[in-house]
């Protein structure tokens, strides 16, 4: 099995917890270069579990998983996982910035320690990323001094510092005050325009309509449908998808 064009290949991926509950149930999907895939679904449907398997934060039981041409085993080969993590960025719901490091140190730690880049060069790169995110003036502050939206933009800058080929977003705006959501979504729109491949777990319908190339809808660990956003939001193929959309769009 080789899928040279895709950066994510998933075939028949399954994972169950000890109680027999299926977190992931026979999932197959692919993501191409530069594609933006938005993952939607009710809570507990396995969205987060799915994208966390993409950088090895979550293991799986059976199936085939290949990220950026690197095969991941169910048991998780440590060497392959680290190789993937160096090339895949992740942004979390709770930001997870390192509170004891300055904004600049948060961003430069991995480039210096993992990629062994020169400190000066890593700092210059970090400052340009912060400038793109519109938060250059915060470089020497600490995370607790920033608002949620600013912290999340720092987290995005941190995930970009290793010059990744793929970004994973796990509900990036769910923990934000409503008036702070757009500044983060704007930064993500910019990235999509620049051709960054992204998998985004989110409930932001506007963002999905505008930015997604495809929308994946999950329920109870299964893929219900994968459609283009205009089809999904106006005329979803599956009854379960339509019911979900009716509930979130009033």
């Amino acid at each position: 099995m080789t899928f040279m064009k895709n950066i994510i290949n998933v075939v028949n991926l399954s994972k169950s917890y000890s109680a027999g509950i299926k977190a992931l149930d026979d999932i197959s999907l692919d993501v191409g270069k530069g594609e933006v895939l938005v993952v939607m679904g009710p809570s507990g449907s396995g969205k987060s579990t799915l994208i966390r398997t993409f950088n090895g934060l979550e293991s799986f039981d059976t199936g085939y998983l290949e990220i950026l041409g690197i095969r991941l085993d169910p048991n998780g080969d440590e060497k392959n996982i680290r190789e993937i993590r160096k090339r895949v960025g992740m942004v979390f719901q709770q930001f997870n910035l390192f509170p004891h490091l300055s904004i600049l140190e948060n961003i430069t730690l991995a480039p210096i320690k993992v990629q062994k880049r020169q400190k000066i060069e890593a700092q210059e790169h970090a400052l340009s990323l912060l400038s793109n995110m519109g938060i250059l003036s915060h470089a020497n502050k600490y995370p607790s001094q920033l608002s949620g939206g600013e912290q999340q933009r720092v987290a995005i800058a941190r995930s970009l510092a290793l010059k990744p080929d793929l970004l994973l977003f796990d509900e990036p705006t769910s923990a934000l005050d409503p008036e702070r959501v757009n500044e983060v979504l704007d930064a993500m729109r910019d990235l999509a325009k620049k051709g960054m491949a992204m998998v985004v777990v989110t409930h932001e319908v506007g963002f999905a309509k505008e930015v997604a190339d495809r929308v994946l809808f999950m329920d109870a660990g299964r893929v219900i449908e994968i459609s283009k956003p205009n089809i999904f939001f106006q005329n979803a193929k599956e009854e379960r998808s339509r019911r979900f959309l009716n509930q979130i769009i009033k």
């Binding site: 950088n55 934060l57 160096k86 997870n96 991995a110 995930s159 290793l162």
Partner: peptide
């Protein structure tokens, strides 16, 4: 979340 964050940046 701190463990997940440092793992995610490849440390």
């Amino acid at each position: 979340g701190q463990w997940e964050a440092f793992k995610s940046v490849g440390l």
